[in-house]
Design a protein around this nucleic acid. Sequence first.
DNA 1: GCCAACGTTGGC
DNA 2: GCCAACGTTGGC
Length: 138
Amino acid sequence: MNFWLVKQEPSKYNWQQLVEDKETPWDGVRNYQARNNLRAMKKADAVLFYHSVVGKAVMGIAQVAREAYPDPTTTDERWVVVNLRPVKPLKKPVSLESIKCHPDLRNMALIKQSRLSVMPLTEAEFRAILEIGATSFK
DNA sequence: GCCAACGTTGGC
DNA sequence: GCCAACGTTGGC
């Protein structure tokens, strides 16, 4: 299993909407690096959902329900989406501030490359965030 | 609202 | 292929 983090401004699409939708295509990615990460996602990979700009916190755990396929919101064949499904919310959202304070998370792409919207995590990073969020995950 | 970081575009 | 100009993202 691989570990990922996706981010979105909650005013555009947020964790609560994902919970209500049960499953959603992660569309609109228009950046090659992020696109390549989407392509590398495998079914059942774990994906943290981060709210950027407003909230600035990891809200919950999702999983890949469907691997990359062409983005239905464009005819441009360069772009792809995956489907995400909510797994569980974090007991406590993990703020950007607390991520920055954690010694094992200082090298996360979230911090080093703040504009990237889809990024891989190491398992250690994934586990550390769950620990801060007081949330278990098998 | 500002600005740094970064990506894209287009002229040469 | 280089680089200036411009646009976007996202933290502060």
